[in-house]
């Protein structure tokens, strides 16, 4: 464990909590892409199957459970409790265009052709594109509430910190996981455009982020 990975995990947890509380307290999921949240729940489900077979540490187990619970709780808020406020019209990204290539690639490019390994690989590839429906929805509506942008900021920060974590681990331990790193770099690149808008608009105190 290193400071980059720990702070990355904390940012990830903060992002998920920010989103959950935003929906829970505003009793609305307007502007939130339910599809992205479904994809994240699928990422955690397919990645954390080793929850019962491999014990890494208390921290690892606790964080996996917390992420799974919060992911499914957020999905249930969007699709059940506050479904009237769900803007399915703007959340129109075709997720099959993500799931099919990701599933295909996880069968082609993996470390070993076993169910657990393929599902883990699937979750890694899926995580790098899971935010696209949300980013697409923001471009479609042309705006995002500032709390939603803070959620995206912490998600992007978590991914950026994971890149630093891999540099550190490569330098310290010679650790290098090609699938995770390549996929993580792709994922972080998707946030660059958002980061630019976030720093130039939201942090200038304009509150809402409106796209040009």
């Amino acid at each position: 464990m290193n400071i980059f990975r720990l702070s990355g995990d904390v940012c990830h947890l903060v992002a998920i909590i920010i989103l959950f509380l935003k929906i829970w307290r505003s009793k609305s999921c307007a502007g939130i892409s339910g599809k992205s949240q479904l994809l994240f729940a699928l990422v955690f489900t397919t990645r954390y199957l080793d929850l019962f077979t491999a014990f890494i540490s208390i921290y690892n187990t606790v964080m996996k459970v917390v992420f799974l619970v919060l992911a499914y709780a957020t999905v249930s808020l969007i699709y059940f409790r506050f479904r009237k406020s769900y803007d399915s019209e703007s959340d129109s990204f075709r997720v099959e265009f993500l799931l099919v290539p990701v599933a295909g690639l996880s069968f082609l490019e993996n470390y070993s052709f076993t169910p657990l390994e393929i599902l883990w690989t699937f979750s890694i590839y899926l995580e790098s594109v899971a935010i696209l429906p949300q980013l697409f929805m923001i471009t479609k509506t042309g705006e995002a509430e500032s709390i939603t942008t803070h959620y995206l900021f912490f998600l992007g920060l978590y991914r950026t910190l994971y890149l630093a974590n891999w540099v550190w681990r490569y330098h310290e331990e010679g650790f290098f996981d090609q699938i995770a790193v390549v996929s993580g770099v792709v994922q972080t690149i998707f946030y660059c455009d958002f980061f630019y808008l976030y720093f130039t608009r939201v942090l200038r105190g304009s509150g809402k982020m409106t796209l040009p």
Partner: peptide, 10 residues
Amino acid sequence: ERHINPKDEL
């Protein structure tokens, strides 16, 4: 030999 990821990351 390829360094198998210990899958210790979240």
